[in-house]
Design a protein around this nucleic acid. Structure first.
Lengths: 167, 167
DNA sequence: TTTCCTTTCACACTAAAGTACCAATCTGGT
DNA sequence: ACCAGATTGGTACTTTAGTGTGAAAGGAAA
């Protein structure tokens, strides 16, 4: 909808959208955002193409912009995809029953991730940056985590988590 | 602007770009390969452009191919860059004597006492009460302790203290 | 005695952590 | 399709934590 209103003047542009979205059909919101970003960029370039004489500058310039943009986008996507990976690895390190304890205390995945970074001495802002979340979200997670662990501070949470063997 | 509106719901995206580029910076070979892959693809497309009539299919198809390719490339880069994360922290693991380490870092008795209580998750006020000291004194001790351990927060102090074997 | 370190504490300030409440979206089952 | 839990965020607020500066008292060593 948003896209449609922005580029309404270039109907032939829409041919590219289904192509982009095709590859990611089974996926969810992030992919939708990906397609959207792609569409927007294409629209922008298309717009510039008519506005200025980019065609005269050569198609290479055109492609380079797209290439760089989507590389960055890809790196970002890659970083996002690897985050849940580390959690799995970390939770499998302990030979005990960390998973059982997490379930016992009703600690969710995200909460555990936050807990792990807390234990490494990271600040809420740092955790937010590393997980690509907002500071408020980290605060929410940590508050919920504290109530589940029945503690009041992050240092207590780390201490208790280690004592019950989930860290 | 246009792009920002499209991904507007996730402003963290833009914060992640410098992060991604930061990890990317020290890797010279990867950048070289990146440029090479880019050049090869551009050449290939250029070649196809003359060989067949891709231009008639529209610039969108052209761009879509490039976009998808470099997204995949970016994801690959992202995956590669996130792996050597945990190696860095393992460098300071010197399992040694506790007393020797205290001397090594110039940590005094009181500071160590404070550190121990910190590790148990106690607040500054609680520590002050337990040691019959004022809150300000605890703050002074902890500030000095942090500078000696070269950390900025109590959680980091506890983490580092454990890693160097004084806790 | 002088010097250095430790320990103690104060005040004023900034930064971070944490609480409370709310709400939208997403996800996994039933 | 609906629902419970998970995830993500926001606002406004209170509480701790941490910094910078200064200072006083005691002990140990030169």
């Amino acid at each position: 909808m948003l896209v449609k209103r922005a580029i309404g003047s270039n109907p032939d542009f829409f041919r590219s959208i289904p192509i982009a979205l095709f590859y990611f059909y089974p996926m969810k919101k992030s992919i939708l955002l990906y397609g959207l970003a792609m569409a927007v960029l294409l629209a922008l370039l298309k717009f510039l193409q008519y506005k200025y004489l980019i065609r005269d500058l050569g198609i290479e310039v055109y492609l380079t912009i797209v290439a760089v943009f989507f590389t960055v986008l890809g790196i970002w996507a890659g970083l996002k995809l690897t985050n849940p990976k580390q959690v799995i690895q970390a939770s499998e390190e302990k030979a005990g029953d960390p998973e059982a304890m997490l379930a016992e205390y009703g600690i969710s995945n995200r909460e555990f991730e936050v807990l792990q970074l807390m234990a490494k001495g990271h600040s809420n802002q740092e955790i937010a940056d590393e997980l690509f979340l907002s500071l408020n979200t980290i605060k929410t997670h940590s508050t919920n985590l504290f109530s589940k662990l029945d503690v009041k501070r992050r240092t207590q949470a780390v201490d208790k988590a280690k004592s019950i063997g989930i860290l």
